[in-house]
């Protein structure tokens, strides 16, 4: 029975993806892209990967969706009507043939590989040593901690790169103020935020804590917090600080800094870089996760909203 559900789900995923990719209107495309992201989350649930499902929906569909929608709305205001210029037929056919061939080959190759878990039998015996049960957190924070460390710096680097684009003119401005222009809408958003924010905080804290045993973790919690932050800025409850303000920088750096510091401490105390002294693994992992959650929340929120722009609505928001 569940196979039928899987196939139905896959068909829906392919349908939404197809529409998202080829529909004419930009906003429709992004709307379907978000739907596609949520369906993917379901697919990950069907695969039994709850961690990834959380991450996919919160980060993949959520934050990316918000970033794309905001980008599109600003492009509209800047007069770029996101028109879909028709590429010549010849190149379309050519790339269609190329991609079809590629897909068929890839699908064929994929079918030759028998699905089955690869390393869970290797991961399982090592987990008790770390004092955590959730294997994914174990892999993320301990066995592949080096990847995760570098990845947090990628996030930080992306933010710095985005913010280094701001021309001097709009240096003083906070990230594009997102406050609703229509006053009553703002009240609605503000009320919603007042209700949502505490719940989001609790959920995020819970997610990080439970992450070591049950599905959850820093990234998912960070994404939830980021969502809350974005909604808060919509409602005008919170004004996100500029990147060169100390608050923003501390929030952004606390995660990578703690991770790096603990890694180096491990090396300094005679062990090796990113080796947790035995007995302290769980506490260190949880501290790293909380620090990461804060940084990821701040990072994703600032990234989704984008660097300050000499924007018309910026000006308007200031004018009032």
């Amino acid at each position: 029975m569940s196979a039928a559900f899987d196939i139905l789900l896959c068909l829906m995923i392919l349908a939404t993806a197809g529409i998202a990719l080829f529909v004419r209107g930009a906003f429709a495309a992004i709307a379907f892209f978000i739907a596609f992201g949520n369906l993917l989350g379901l697919a990950w649930l069907a695969l039994g990967a709850v961690n990834v499902a959380l991450a996919e929906i919160a980060v993949g569909a959520g934050v990316t969706g918000v970033a794309l929608i905001l980008a599109c709305s600003r492009l509209f205001e800047l007069g770029d009507n996101l028109a879909d210029v028709r590429t010549p037929l010849a190149s379309r056919l050519g790339s269609a043939a190329l991609c079809l061939g590629f897909t068929v080959m890839l699908a064929g190759v994929v079918l030759t590989i028998p699905p089955g878990d690869r390393l869970s039998k290797v991961v399982a015996p090592l987990l008790p040593g770390l004092g955590i049960e959730n294997p994914v957190t174990g892999v993320l924070l301990a066995f592949r901690g080096y990847d995760t460390l570098l990845e947090t710096f990628v996030l930080l680097g992306a933010l710095v790169a985005a913010w280094s684009l701001t021309p001097d003119a709009s240096r003083r401005l906070p990230p594009t103020t997102m406050v609703m222009t229509d006053p009553t809408s703002r009240i609605v958003a503000e009320a919603f935020t007042r209700l949502l924010a505490p719940a989001a905080l609790i959920i995020a804290a819970y997610l990080v804590w439970v992450g070591s045993d049950l599905p959850g973790g820093a990234f998912q919690a960070g994404a939830v917090l980021a969502g809350a932050l974005v909604v808060a800025t919509l409602g005008g409850v919170v004004v996100l600080p500029r990147l060169d303000s100390l608050a923003a920088r501390i929030a952004l750096m606390v995660g990578p800094l703690t991770f790096l510091a603990i890694g180096l401490a491990g090396a300094a105390l005679g062990g090796r870089f990113l080796a947790y002294p035995d007995g302290l693994e769980k506490t260190l992992i949880v501290t790293i996760e909380y620090a990461l959650a804060i940084s990821i929340a701040a990072g994703l929120a600032l990234l989704a909203i984008g660097p300050p722009q000499p924007m018309p609505n910026n000006a308007r928001a200031d004018a009032r």
Binding site: R249, P256, L260, L264, R272, F273
Partner: peptide, 23 residues
């Protein structure tokens, strides 16, 4: 303490420092 790790950790540390010091 082997250069294999420090060669990656040190520039990351300097990145954070550069971000902290700003100007």
């Amino acid at each position: 303490m082997s250069p294999l790790d420090l060669l990656v950790a040190t520039p990351l540390g300097f990145m954070l420092a550069a971000l902290a010091f700003g100007g």
